[in-house]
Amino acid sequence: MLPLPSAQQLRYLIALSELRHFGRAAAACAVTQSTLSAGIMALERQLDAQLLDRTVGKKVVFTPLGHEIAAKGRHALEALEAVPQLAAAARTPLTGPLRLGVIPTIGPFLVAPLVKTIRTRFPQITLSITEDTTEHLLEKLALGRLDILVLAMPCLCDGTETIPLWRDPFQVIMPEGHPLASLSHVPVERLEDQRMIMMEDGHCLREQTLAVCRQGRGWDSAEDEGDSTFTATSLHTMADMVELGLGIGVVPALATEGGLLQNHKVIMRPLSGGPVWRTIGLAWRPRSPRAADFHTLATAFSALAPHKEHTALTPE
């Protein structure tokens, strides 16, 4: 009988395949880079096969066979990890560890009610929370380091199963005395020629804001932003910059209704015209043995919408 790869060896190989960087892959597996490298070399010796092309210098390049084995290994590891999860879910649903990821434009305004809901309704769940950008959370989900994500859609969520919870309308914030403050609603076309403050690269809210701006400004690409924008690392920093008169910003209702503008001398107006919202939703790995639990959580989380009229998307 041929010797089988260990689960740890497969984790190393899959992490390297996903991240294409030895240091990041080692960090994702919570081991040193030398340990990860040695583990993959041991797997190559065990299989008597070359999985990495080491003739290209420091770049991580998989051989065709390496690509195929990494893909097979991913499915094998998912199936192996599903065995104890399936048994645990069958014994008692909605119990045990739940590793949840949340993005920074949702976390500060939703984590508190979310934790309260879990503690009240599902006290047997042991919750841990990671806040990070969408890209990094999806990486951790694919590597099995997280179980479920709270995201803002649309996003590049390929390879996950998703369920929408509610629409989160966009609003415009501006300094006091701004010409747009006289309007009850700000049409997207009125964003033309405005100096915008947006989230920095890596935040999905930036791409969602650019999509809104393109409706009224005819932008074809991110390059069309030119010098018309400032960037912020958080929504709180954005509110500070708006108050200082550096520009206007597009923010989600979840944030404004969660206290973002407290102690800020800024004006808020709803945005109108076209699709002017994001969708709060959940994502998890396909074929997860805990899918039934996640659907139950989705139903509970949908009740956390700031206003009932925003709950246009009811989980089935």
Rank of each mutant, 00 (worst) to 15 (best):
V83D: 03
P84N: 11
Q85C: 13
L86P: 03
A87M: 11
A88C: 13
A90L: 15
R91P: 01
R91N: 09
R91S: 11
P93F: 08
P93L: 09
L94M: 08
L94K: 01
T95Q: 13
G96R: 14
G96D: 12
L98G: 11
L100D: 02
L100Q: 06
L100C: 04
L100E: 03
G101T: 12
G101M: 06
G101N: 09
V102N: 05
I103T: 15
I103R: 11
P104N: 06
T105L: 04
I106C: 07
G107F: 08
G107M: 02
P108H: 09
L110M: 12
V111P: 01
A112N: 02
A112K: 08
P113M: 03
P113V: 02
L114T: 08
K116I: 00
I118H: 06
R119P: 00
T120V: 00
P123W: 10
P123Y: 12
P123K: 11
P123D: 05
P123H: 10
Q124D: 09
T126G: 10
S128H: 14
S128Q: 15
S128M: 11
I129F: 02
T130N: 00
T130Q: 06
T133P: 04
T134E: 13
E135K: 13
H136D: 13
E139Q: 14
K140G: 01
K140M: 03
K140C: 00
L141R: 10
L141C: 05
L141W: 04
A142Q: 12
A142D: 05
A142T: 14
G144P: 02
G144F: 02
G144R: 02
G144Y: 04
R145W: 00
R145T: 02
L146N: 09
L146T: 07
L149R: 03
V150Y: 02
L151E: 03
L151A: 05
P154D: 01
C155M: 11
C157G: 07
D158C: 00
G159A: 08
T160Y: 00
T160R: 01
T162G: 05
T162R: 08
I163D: 04
I163G: 05
R167F: 00
D168S: 05
Q171E: 15
I173F: 11
P175T: 09
P175L: 09
E176A: 14
E176H: 12
P179C: 09
A181L: 07
A181Q: 06
S182V: 15
L183N: 02
S184H: 06
H185Q: 15
H185F: 14
H185E: 15
V186R: 09
V186F: 11
V186Y: 05
P187F: 10
V188K: 04
R190W: 08
R190L: 12
R190P: 03
E192K: 15
E192H: 15
D193C: 12
D193I: 06
R195V: 11
R195D: 05
M196K: 11
M196N: 09
M196Q: 14
I197T: 02
I197V: 10
I197K: 05
I197R: 06
M198S: 13
M198Y: 12
M199L: 14
M199G: 14
E200F: 11
D201V: 13
